[in-house]
């Protein structure tokens, strides 16, 4: 009985600091920020274009460039919608194929139409749209990481 109490004490004494030490960075909330993708004049109306980004992200004790891309859909009336490139099945990057008129995911051949809705393969959820705004004729997109 005494041993049980002392033993549990020892476990707590070691467990609390060690587990907090290990877990801490995992609990950091995801943050987001507005990323500037340049002048909207560079976008072609009636098309879907890949926009690449690169910004610095702090990963533990290093600050490193984080690269990736999003898909910007510009309508004839210049309304812009920005899709995440992350496939809703298992997070591969989808690629817009003009000829097929679909976003195609190379991993399990998932397909999405030009509105981001799943049309073939394993994905069942539409591509997520990213919050975007236009400031001083530049396209800004809110990215979370």
């Amino acid at each position: 009985m005494k041993t049980t109490v002392l033993g549990s004490g020892a476990v707590l004494l070691l467990g609390i600091p060690l587990i907090s030490y290990f877990v801490a960075p995992s609990l950091k909330k995801a943050t987001g920020k507005w990323v500037d993708f340049g002048a909207i004049d560079d976008l072609t109306p009636g098309s879907i274009e890949m926009l690449t980004y690169e910004f610095l992200v702090k990963d533990g004790w290093l600050v490193l460039p984080q690269r990736g891309f999003v898909w910007a859909k510009t309508n004839q009336d210049r309304a812009i919608k920005v899709f995440s490139s992350t496939c809703t099945h298992l997070a591969c990057n989808v690629i817009w194929q003009e000829e097929a008129n679909h976003f195609i995911c190379p991993c399990h051949s998932g397909r999405f139409d030009s509105h981001g809705n799943p049309v073939a393969g394993p994905p069942t959820k539409p591509l997520s749209t990213l919050e975007s705004k236009i400031e001083e004729e530049n396209l800004l997109v809110y990215l979370t990481f």
Binding site: K28, D59, W61
Partner: peptide, 10 residues
């Protein structure tokens, strides 16, 4: 597992 959302140095 990763110590955060990224597959980086951590």
């Amino acid at each position: 597992f990763q110590g955060g959302p990224l597959t980086g140095i951590v």
